[in-house]
C-alpha cells in the first residue's frame, strides 16, 4: 500500500484525545449547585421572554415578595396606613370589634388568607426546587446521551478493527500480490 499509515506532522489522535479529556473534565467538574441555578434561571427567563411577559416580572418575583404576595396575620385587616390619624382609627376599630362580630364572622376569612399567603410561599419554593431538579435531570440525560453516543462510536470502531484484523489474518495466510 502506498498510502502512509498516519501523519507525523500533526498527531490527530492526540488532539482528539485532548479534546475528549477536556469534555470529560468539564463533565466531572461542571455544574455546581450555583451553575445549575444559573442555567435554571436562564431557561426560565427564555420562556418568559418568548411569551412576552413583563421582563421585570422574574426579578420582582425573586426579590420583592411584597409585590406579588402579602403578609397576613389576624391584625392585618384592622391596620391602617394613615399615620397618626391611622393610629386613632385602629383603636376605634379594635374597640368596635365585638360589635362588627354581631354582623359577620371575620375569623375564617383571616385564617384562609393567612393560609393562602403561606401556601403562596410554599408554591414558589416548590416550583423553584422543581426547576432546579428538572435542570439537574436534563443535564444528566444529556450526559447519558453523550456517553451512549460515545459508546456506540467505540463499538463501531471495535467492529471495524475486528473486521480489519480478520482480513489481516487472511492476508498473512496468503501472500498478497498487486498483479
Amino acid at each position: 500500500m502506498s498510502i502512509e499509515i498516519e501523519s507525523k506532522d500533526v498527531d490527530v489522535r492526540k488532539i482528539m484525545s485532548e479534546i475528549r479529556e477536556r469534555i470529560a473534565e468539564k463533565k466531572r467538574g461542571l455544574y455546581t449547585d450555583e451553575e445549575i441555578r444559573e442555567i435554571a434561571e436562564r431557561k426560565l427567563e427564555a420562556v418568559l421572554e418568548t411569551r412576552q411577559f413583563n421582563p421585570d416580572f422574574l426579578k420582582d418575583f425573586k426579590t420583592k415578595t411584597e409585590v406579588w404576595n402579602y403578609a397576613f396575620n389576624p391584625e392585618t385587616i384592622y391596620k391602617t396606613s394613615r399615620g397618626g390619624v391611622g393610629g386613632l382609627l385602629g383603636t376605634i376599630r379594635n374597640f368596635l370589634k365585638p360589635v362588627q362580630k354581631l354582623f359577620w364572622n371575620p375569623t375564617p376569612m383571616i385564617a384562609a388568607l393567612s393560609r393562602q399567603s403561606d401556601l403562596n410561599l410554599y408554591t414558589v419554593q416548590m416550583l423553584h426546587n422543581l426547576t432546579l431538579e428538572l435542570t439537574r435531570l436534563n443535564l444528566e440525560v444529556q450526559e447519558l446521551r453523550a456517553r451512549l453516543q460515545q459508546t456506540e462510536a467505540n463499538l463501531e470502531e471495535l467492529k471495524k478493527r475486528e473486521r480489519a484484523l480478520e482480513s489481516l489474518a487472511v492476508l498473512k495466510e496468503q501472500p498478497k500480490s498487486t498483479s
Partner: peptide, 13 residues
C-alpha cells in the same frame, strides 16, 4: 488521521 489535516466528531460535545 493519515493526513493530519482533519478532526472528527462522534457527538455534539
Amino acid at each position: 488521521r493519515r493526513s493530519g489535516g482533519g478532526l472528527y466528531y462522534a457527538n455534539y460535545d
